[in-house]
Design a protein around this nucleic acid. Structure first.
Ligand SMILES: Nc1ncnc2c1ncn2[C@H]1C[C@H](O)[C@@H](COP(=O)(O)OP(=O)(O)OP(=O)(O)O)O1
Ligand SMILES: [Mg+2]
Length: 428
DNA sequence: TTTACAGCGAC
RNA sequence: GUUGUCGCUGUAAA
């Protein structure tokens, strides 16, 4: 049951506050920082709560910031005030358990206990099961094009509490501030609001139900929807049919460039691609686009102009590559691409006349092998801890002692700071 | 088991 | 300057 009382409950608000505080995000239009939210609430929470219960509270405008997208174009972020971020977080926390019960099992994005790896492994299963033709759909400017009236009416099917619905609508219609000029929002949910991901899933839950009704196998991750079919003809037919459904019924726009019908080997999903091997059926692969993306990051880290020490650059590279490999662990095909990345990193290091290029930091091929072992262990239900330990001893060579001492000192400070915060919290 | 910090990825 | 959700890895503390 979603009610304003439960949303504004002390325990729920404390949790929401903690989340906003630890994100350490930038300020909204009012300039209030995340560190200042606690002491603001200590003096103003009671009046704020009264305003909310009386339906008198009006959310501030979101601050619009443009950021570049990885493959060209710009993304318009809408950054709410820290107070509004906390309130939306509080709403989200109450709504999530209710909606988790009704969401589709094939939806993987923005949902607790679900991740991209599960989606990619499921895609591999579908391909292995003979559904080798893929419809890939992506929506154009998805969050920005969400229809308010459709969303509100869908919310009212589950949420019966009028004050909550009214508050959510106020958040949807709050203004947009850019270069000192405030404009009105008539559609869309801000990219950057804590509630937006959940709302977007509520919108596309309708699509999930429609695809399920038609009996198709599919995987959805946010606005990325892949449908797996057994023939090209069926794939082409459902592509146009589902596109029509999305545009006419859901009033959203399908991205024509990112949408395609292809054989499994040409399909991509969540950074991965797939390859059909004669011996092992469908294998998971890393496409060149993903390799090139991490290469660019490596290049940025090893630029001549940034005046960082060799030690520091190597540490940063290690962290980047380790984290990257950790995500792309599922890949077992096309290991040449990984060797290529390894070679690229060594060239960048040699450019600086650094001797490390022979030894570490990459060991990418070794890491891939370990990643594959880890994946096998996971699939067969065994513990993967031993593999992790092996990877650790192989990869961590130096830079450890220095870093650990620094972190220790810092952590001690943070811990005491956190305890102080918890003590302050009981004030309001 | 949980919490804090650092980071990586998907969208 | 850059927000948000989700997941994961590593470290540390109970
Ligand atoms: N960095 C981010 N911060 C907040 N929200 C994000 C971020 N990246 C993606 N999203 C959300 C908002 C997007 O509308 C939605 C789908 O992502 P994506 O398809 O990459 O962009 P998009 O749909 O807005 O534009 P495009 O027309 O290029 O597809 O996911
Ligand atoms: Mg999109």
């Amino acid at each position: 049951m979603v009610t304003l009382e439960r949303i504004l409950d002390r325990k729920n608000i404390e949790k929401a506050l903690l989340q906003v505080a630890r994100n350490k995000g930038a300020a909204g239009v009012d300039g209030m920082l995340t560190e200042e939210l606690q002491k603001y609430l200590n003096s103003n929470w009671r009046v704020l709560k009264m305003e909310l219960l009386e339906g008198k509270y009006c959310p501030k405008a979101v601050r619009e910031v443009e950021i570049p997208k990885p493959n060209g174009g710009t993304r318009m972020l809408g950054i709410p005030t820290v107070i509004d971020r906390m309130l939306q977080q509080a709403i989200s926390q109450v709504m999530i358990p209710v909606y988790e019960e009704q969401f589709s099992a094939c939806s993987y994005g923005f949902r607790p206990k679900r991740n991209a790896h599960q989606a990619v492994l499921q895609a591999q299963c579908l391909l292995k099961g003979g559904r080798e033709w893929v419809v890939e759909l992506d929506l154009e400017k998805f969050f920005d094009k969400v229809n308010h009236d459709r969303l509100m009416s869908r919310l009212s099917l589950t949420i019966k509490d009028k004050p909550t619905l009214s508050l959510i609508r106020k958040f949807l219609t709050s203004g947009i501030l850019k270069d000192g000029v405030e404009t009105v929002r008539t559609a869309g949910t801000p990219q950057g609001s804590p509630l937006s991901p959940l709302l977007s899933n509520i919108v596309l839950d309708e699509l999930d139900k429609e695809i399920e009704k038609r009996g198709h196998a599919f995987i959805r991750y946010a606005d990325d929807c892949s449908i797996y079919l057994k023939s090209e003809r069926a794939a082409k037919r459902t592509a146009s049919s589902i596109t029509r459904y999305i545009e006419d019924k859901l009033l959203l726009k399908v991205n024509k460039e990112k949408t395609k019908v292809s054989y499994g080997e040409q399909s991509t999903l969540l950074g991965y691609s797939f390859e059909k091997s004669p011996t092992q059926s469908w294998m998971i692969q890393i496409p060149w686009t993903s390799i090139n993306r991490v290469k660019r990051k490596c290049k940025a880290l090893t630029k001549r102009s940034n005046g960082k020490s060799e030690k520091r650059v190597l540490e940063n590279l290690k962290v980047l590559i380790e984290g990257w490999i950790n995500y792309f662990q599922l890949a077992t095909a096309n290991t040449r691409a990984l060797g290529n990345l390894d070679g690229y990193v060594r060239v960048r290091l040699r450019m600086h006349q650094w001797k490390a290029w022979k030894r570490a930091p990459a060991r990418i091929k070794g890491l891939l092998r370990l990643g594959a072992s880890k994946r096998d262990a996971y699939e067969h239900g065994h513990s993967s801890k031993s593999y992790c330990r092996i990877a650790k001893s192989w990869v961590l060579t130096k830079t450890m002692t220095n870093k650990v001492i620094k972190k220790r000192g810092y952590l001690g400070f943070v811990d005491s700071f956190y305890l102080k915060k918890k003590a302050q919290m009981s004030m309001f």
